[in-house]
Simulated scan of single mutants.
Amino acid sequence: MENPDDSIPAPGIEIESLAEFDAVIAGGSLAGHRVQSVDLTDRSAALFAADTSGAVFLGCRMEPDAAAKVRADGAFVFPPVPGLPFDPYRGLLYSPDALYEGLAEGGYEATPDARAYRWFQRTRANGDAFASMLRALHDDAVSDALDEVLTGARVVGVMGGHTTARGSAAYAAAARLGRTLARGGLTVATGGGPGAMEAANLGAYAAPHPDPMLDKACELLAAAPSFTPSVTDWALAAFAVRERWPDGGGSVSIPTWFYGHEPPNPFADHIAKYFANALREDGLLARSTAGVVFLPGAAGTVQEVFDNTTPNYYGSRGTPTPMVLVGHAHWTEELPAWPLLRTLAAGRPMESRIALVDTVDEAPEALARLSG
């Protein structure tokens, strides 16, 4: 009897660009390889000449005769889905330019990010299994691309509220935090939205530049302090900063269309945007292997504190990751998460991995101490 596992082709090289495709197919074989979202309409001759048995083509455009040939070879072909505002098979993370394409000409509502959010709003509750499948394919592809980007990186998460306004002292402090962490060799990862999240990504972007650049950038951004009432003005201000100071430092953001009314900030060079918020939340915290800094925030940040506490408490991810809460009054009086966190940690390995500091500027030293 045939083993059902034998029907799944063994994975080969993942091919995510036309340059990678050309390099591999020059050897005469794509057998077993995965080709993700590459336009192959001009590569029919190469496909006809190559062995494509067991290859998997995910969302690749091909001429009909080339598609028929690779199917006859035994390849699996998942064709592009027309009319979608996103690519469910994408092989790479988003960039700010990709999500905000068309911003200057048509405003935010014309961008791929806004169109994907509108599609999500239409389909999220209508019970359409096809739409659910497309969202799942997309999010799985994003997770795969995120893992590839973060391989070998020391990732520190920075969590905080989306209401922190540009021009405020709290925004400037979060930006300094991101810059300090990035200059220390850490990869800054945030939830990808506005407020404190944007500030941390901005700080990482500013890391290669002289110190005065960050102060000037914060000053310029203050002209559009919030994404309300105009996402367009808010985003254009960020792109103006990027244009004035190109070649910024890298960071990662992990936003979600579940909270699509909050636009992704343009300062992370790698954006892993998800439809499923649960995947996004767990993925962000699980990948923050060098620890997490929790700036003052509301319900979302409180949820992240205890989402991160659970695996630390049970040891399900091995050694507990450091957790630094910033703002004594906030976390002991306004939203008293710290007393509960300390009680949970008592007598467990995570007890030596948690800290409460009063100011943002104390957080990097606390993080380094907990990591030692």
Rank of each mutant, 00 (worst) to 15 (best):
A299H: 06
F306S: 12
P349Q: 06
H330M: 08
Y313I: 00
H328N: 10
T309E: 12
P322T: 08
D307N: 14
A290I: 03
A278L: 10
F267P: 07
G297F: 03
G318Y: 13
P336M: 02
A276F: 12
L341D: 01
L340Y: 06
E351N: 07
N265R: 06
F258P: 01
F294C: 10
L335F: 12
V292H: 00
T289E: 10
F267R: 09
A290D: 09
T321A: 15
P349D: 08
D282A: 13
F306T: 09
P336R: 11
F267S: 07
K273V: 13
S352C: 07
A290S: 15
P336Q: 10
S316L: 14
E262P: 05
A278C: 03
R348Q: 11
L284V: 02
P264S: 15
A337H: 04
G283C: 08
T289P: 00
H330F: 06
G300C: 02
G297D: 07
H261M: 05
A298C: 00
R342P: 01
L284S: 05
M323G: 02
V305E: 00
D307Y: 14
E334G: 00
A345I: 06
A276N: 15
P264N: 14
Y259F: 15
E281V: 14
R342L: 03
D307I: 04
P296E: 09
A355R: 14
N308H: 14
L279Q: 11
E304R: 03
G327K: 02
G318A: 07
F275G: 02
K273G: 00
A286K: 08
W338G: 03
P296V: 04
A268G: 09
P339G: 03
T301Y: 05
T310M: 15
R287Q: 01
R317G: 13
P320F: 07
F267V: 05
E262L: 14
T310R: 10
L341C: 05
Y259S: 10
A355W: 07
A346S: 14
A286H: 06
A276S: 12
L285V: 09
A337M: 11
P339R: 06
L341S: 04
L284E: 08
T289V: 15
V324C: 09
E334F: 01
P296T: 11
P320Q: 07
F258W: 13
A286W: 03
N308W: 01
R287W: 02
P339N: 09
V302Q: 12
N308Y: 01
T321M: 12
I354Q: 04
N312M: 01
N265E: 09
T289A: 10
S288M: 05
W331P: 07
W338P: 03
Y259K: 00
V302P: 00
L295R: 05
A329H: 10
A276H: 12
K273S: 00
L284P: 02
A268W: 06
G297V: 01
F267H: 05
A286E: 11
T319A: 15
E333H: 14
W338C: 05
H261D: 13
A345Y: 09
M323I: 04
F294Q: 03
R353H: 13
L335Y: 08
D269W: 11
V305N: 07
R353L: 05
G260C: 07
V324I: 02
F294R: 02
W331I: 03
F267I: 05
A278Q: 13
R348N: 10
Y259N: 15
Q303H: 10
A299L: 07
G327D: 02
G297K: 08
L344D: 04
T321P: 00
E351R: 06
G327W: 10
Y274S: 00
P322R: 00
P349V: 12
